[in-house]
Structure formats: structure tokens, C-alpha cells
Amino acid sequence: MKQTTIAKKVEGIGIGLHKGEPIKIVLEPMDIDSGIVFYRSDLGTSFRAEPKNVINTQMATVVGNTKGYVSTIEHLLSAINGYGIDNIRIVLDANEVPVMDGSAISFCMMLDEAGIRELEAKKKVLVVKKEVEVREGDKYVKVTPSKNPKFNYTIKFENPVIGKQSYTFEFSKENFINEIARARTFGFLKDVQKLNSMGLALGGSLDNAVVIDDNRILNPEGLRFENEFVRHKILDAIGDISLLGAPMVGDYEAYAGSHDLNHKLTVAILSDEKNYEMVTLDEKAPEYAKAFA
């Protein structure tokens, strides 16, 4: 298998979740071994999507440096990872990726419009060699060796609308589009009101999030999936794990995970070369290729 990028430049405009202002996003092709790069056109500075550039994980995954940052990158990265794209530049004129409808499906549509182009270099994947776990109390995220990558996630909320949900996702582009990409981010009305009072989440609405009151969903159309909440957590995890710098071949498991735990997991994986192996997908490693076909 060969490395990929997009076939042509595409662009769109969407609302930023926190400032509530229009943001222009442009996706551009990149050459071999470029990775995933964010470029702030208003600042003239770039940030590569990798763990060392993560500067905040409180409410979203944020990459940046002393010159600036880009927030809420996980939904876009999830689509890029789901499509198996290795090299791409994301150009933004503001400090966050537009929220679109709160899921990854709008980014999938942009990638479909752009098309995928193979490059003249073999694809590289990160193969998990041993179990790595990050735990905080009863919450944990971990990866284990596997030739057929899966994401197994469990959430548990006191709110009766969500309760306890579990879902296992077998990684492939087709499965990502059908099972994960349309799952929207969610939040509680009381938290949204608190964030608004702090000047945050000003772009949040029923058009780009599932909003929950004490015992009901406020969105008139209801849910897209019965278990949309846990599916969205998988969507986030796929995006966060893509910061490893190469598609991961291994199983991911989480109980009440978060952006912060996902970031700590990527750091833990890369901290010891015994945890992983970078494998080039050629005739010597066909067993790893089928997940990214």
C-alpha cells in the first residue's frame, strides 16, 4: 500500500464553536512523509498534528506553540484517520476548526469532494506491540496488540438520558462512514449556559450538538443513533489517536475516557520503543494492510 493525500484542494466555511464566528477551512494536498499539518493563515504559522504539540485537552484537543494554536481538531482528524489519509494540510483563518454539525460527516463530504491520491512511497503504520494503559481512578484508556483494529468504548453518566452505553467499532473507512461519522457531540444545558456566561461555546446550538436537559433531549429531531453518545466518544478517540503520527494497528479500549486521557495515552505509547513498531506496508506485512484498504 502507498501513502495517500487528497487529489485536489477543497474549502468550506463553518461556525467556530467557541467564538461563534465564521471560519474558513481549506484542505490541501501534501507530499510524502509530510503528515497532518495545521496552518494558521492569519498568523503565518504551522503546527504538525503530534503529541508534543498538544497544549490543552480540557474541552477539546488543542495543538499550538508560542505563536498560536488551533482548537477542536478531533472531529476533522477523525475523518482524516477514518479515510486513511497520511498527508494533508489544513488551512484556517482562526484559532479553531469549525464545528459544522458537531460530527465528522461534513469533513467526510469535503474529503469525498477532494478525492484521494496515492503517492510514490509506501504507507507506514504504527503497530502496537504490548498493552499500554493510562488510568485515573476507575477511568481508563488503553491499547493492546491486534491485527484488526477495533475501538471498544464504554461511558456511564448519571443522567438517565445517557446512562451506560457500550459500543465496539471495527476500524475501516466504510464502517467509519456508516457507524461513527454522523454521531454528534453532546452537552448538558446547564453546562452550555455556564460556558456562555464565560464567553465560551457562543457558536453552540441545536444545529451542531445534542443538548440534554435533566431528563430529555432538546433537539426536536432526536438522536441519529440510539447510542449516539458513545459513538461520538469513539469518533473523538479516533481523532485523538491519529496524533500518533501514523495509522494505529491495535485495539483501543476506554471506560469514561477523555481528550486528556487519550493524549496521555499517545504520549505513553511513544515514550518507549518497546510499545510499538513502525511498519511499512509492503509485501512483507500484508496482514496489516486490510484495515486501511
Rank of each mutant, 00 (worst) to 15 (best):
5 T>W: 10
5 T>R: 01
6 I>A: 10
10 V>E: 10
10 V>D: 14
12 G>V: 11
13 I>T: 12
13 I>L: 13
13 I>C: 12
16 G>L: 06
17 L>R: 00
17 L>A: 12
25 I>W: 11
25 I>S: 06
27 L>H: 12
32 I>C: 15
33 D>P: 04
33 D>C: 04
35 G>N: 03
36 I>P: 06
43 L>C: 03
45 T>M: 08
46 S>V: 01
47 F>S: 05
49 A>L: 09
51 P>K: 01
52 K>H: 10
54 V>H: 14
55 I>T: 05
61 T>E: 08
64 G>A: 07
64 G>M: 03
65 N>S: 11
66 T>F: 15
69 Y>F: 14
70 V>M: 07
71 S>P: 09
72 T>W: 13
73 I>V: 12
74 E>G: 03
77 L>P: 00
81 N>R: 00
85 I>R: 00
87 N>F: 15
91 V>L: 03
96 E>W: 09
98 P>C: 06
98 P>N: 03
98 P>I: 04
98 P>R: 00
100 M>T: 01
109 M>K: 12
110 M>F: 13
111 L>M: 05
115 G>H: 04
116 I>T: 10
119 L>N: 07
122 K>S: 13
126 L>Q: 10
129 K>G: 14
137 G>A: 02
140 Y>A: 00
143 V>W: 08
143 V>E: 12
146 S>E: 01
148 N>D: 08
150 K>R: 01
150 K>W: 08
151 F>Y: 15
154 T>C: 10
155 I>N: 10
158 E>V: 02
159 N>D: 09
159 N>K: 02
163 G>T: 05
167 Y>Q: 01
168 T>P: 01
173 K>I: 14
175 N>L: 03
179 E>C: 07
179 E>V: 03
180 I>C: 11
183 A>L: 05
184 R>M: 04
187 G>T: 02
188 F>V: 04
189 L>C: 01
191 D>F: 09
195 L>A: 09
195 L>M: 15
195 L>P: 10
196 N>H: 13
205 S>P: 08
213 D>M: 01
216 R>N: 09
218 L>Y: 07
225 F>D: 15
228 E>N: 02
229 F>R: 00
233 K>V: 03
236 D>V: 09
238 I>A: 06
243 L>F: 05
247 P>A: 13
248 M>T: 07
250 G>P: 13
250 G>S: 06
250 G>C: 03
252 Y>P: 05
255 Y>M: 00
257 G>S: 05
260 D>H: 14
261 L>S: 10
263 H>T: 08
267 V>N: 11
267 V>C: 13
268 A>Q: 07
269 I>E: 04
271 S>F: 12
275 N>D: 15
275 N>P: 11
279 V>E: 10
284 K>T: 12
285 A>L: 06
286 P>G: 05
286 P>V: 00
287 E>C: 05
288 Y>C: 02
289 A>T: 13
289 A>G: 08
